[in-house]
Design a protein around this nucleic acid. Structure first.
Lengths: 250, 250
DNA sequence: TCAAAAGTGTTCCGTGTACACCCATGG
DNA sequence: CCATGGGTGTACACGGAACACTTTTGA
């Protein structure tokens, strides 16, 4: 028995939560001191809102959906326009559409999440209204963007455990220690270097380049690159448990 | 360097992929013969499109987003209006918004997926334009709905492996054999009854009701109900691997 | 009393984890 | 030559899987 429904005059927005291992140009100054990878944090660029609603607050980079572009295309475009960042990995996260999430008009936001390499963040726009924040130490954000970031962080931690996305944080070639540091940073716990090496090597997800990184004060580590997904195939999968030892009675 | 973008005049639709273990009233007649749970299939209700575009084709139940309702609310409402089904489990799946997915106007669809109990499907609308289909034997659907259903099936199979959603297919109380049949149907492989029992019992996700199901030709099985999630807590988790033994060289 | 499903016990093996140990380089 | 991170070897515990076995009912 369909009753009459007033249709929503909703505007369609696209926003992106971008994660990087290092902040881009503008960020809160921190005293530089050596930290363990598991104690390091992730960085997220935010944009200050110049208009109401939420004027003055920090918000996720985003914008309106264009007529001819795909959702992912809109995410990439608005990201580039607002922050100058071009992500290596971009995936849809969730669509937020509570009727009251924006005060004046109905806005439905398709939210993406992205991973970028260090070099990609360096091209980010220098603007007092764009700033990189520690993902674990964010200010209060506009709209429901706090909730969105928390959701994205959860997804990143989970997905890292069963997929190969960690590569998207790194340059073309990298050492196993660098890859391990990504896992340690995201999962916030140390990993055994020996076991990590074996797990990754056995998976076939990486191939040696034959090069080593020199200039370190110690034994030069081998450089790897991600295996062609086609070659890697099913065997390319490896699993790094997100939170082990939560099994037995705590 | 933001160039001018023509904003999309997109309409916001909501659709739902509904899964049930048994078809509702109207479905293709199949000769009733005993089948193994792992050989049984899932059922999905579809609605015949009465208007262009895609007139005559089968499509996912859905409709337009109402002004005052949440996305999930819209999914539940349109589902009820078109099929008469009220799902026990309803979760957002993905948002599809390719510019050309609907021929005339731009439509962005927020798609949900749902699980229903046998009793809930029996209340479904009797209408020649609503029919239940075998999820593994669908006709060619309108728009990009084939792609959507395939995506939803993948998510169901994956999520069943690490969450408790299987309950949503069953009545208030159920036997372990019934729960196991859900897993066998969705994962399309047989499970060892002994190991399944131990895994589930050890997890604390179920509690015995103290009752047994009588009337079977054999030993009466105990009836269980889902544990209160608060009590179950972290220990409430158990994992049934989706596809084991794909590890070593095939 | 018998067939068949419910439910229990036990063994085997892959995988994650800990940790001792060797290797190679810049300072 | 030595401190340090790169890289290898190995032993152990846990949990998934296989499967033999006992229990309980209706017909």
């Amino acid at each position: 028995m369909p009753r009459t429904i007033e249709l929503a005059e909703a505007r369609l927005a696209v926003s992106t939560v971008i994660f990087a291992r290092e902040p881009g140009v503008a960020h809160d100054e921190l005293p530089e001191q050596p930290v363990q990878p598991a104690d390091r944090s992730l960085w997220i660029p935010l944009v200050r809102r110049l208009r109401a609603p939420g004027k003055g607050r920090w918000a996720l980079p985003g914008g309106w959906l264009g007529a001819a572009e795909s959702l992912e295309g809109a995410a990439a475009r608005t990201l580039d326009e607002t922050t100058g960042v071009t992500p290596r990995y971009l995936e849809q996260l969730y669509t937020f559409g509570a009727p009251d999430r924006s005060p004046d008009e109905r806005v439905v936001s398709v939210v993406y999440w992205a991973l970028v390499r260090p070099e990609e963040t360096s091209g980010s726009i220098e603007d007092p209204n764009v700033r990189w924040f520690d993902a674990d130490d964010l200010p209060e954000l506009a709209f429901d963007h706090d909730e969105i970031v928390a959701y994205a962080l959860g997804r990143l931690r989970t997905k890292l455990g069963y997929s190969q996305i960690a590569h998207a944080f790194l340059d073309e070639t990298f050492t196993l220690a660098e890859l391990r540091e990504v896992y340690e940073t995201v999962m916030r716990r140390p990993l055994d270097p020996a076991n990590f090496r074996r797990t990754v090597e056995a998976s076939g997800a990486l191939v040696e380049t034959g090069e080593v990184r020199t200039g370190t004060p110690h034994r030069p580590p081998k450089l790897y690159r991600p295996a062609d997904p086609a070659e890697a195939g099913i065997q390319g999968a490896f699993r790094i448990p997100v939170a082990p030892h939560l099994r037995r009675h705590p």
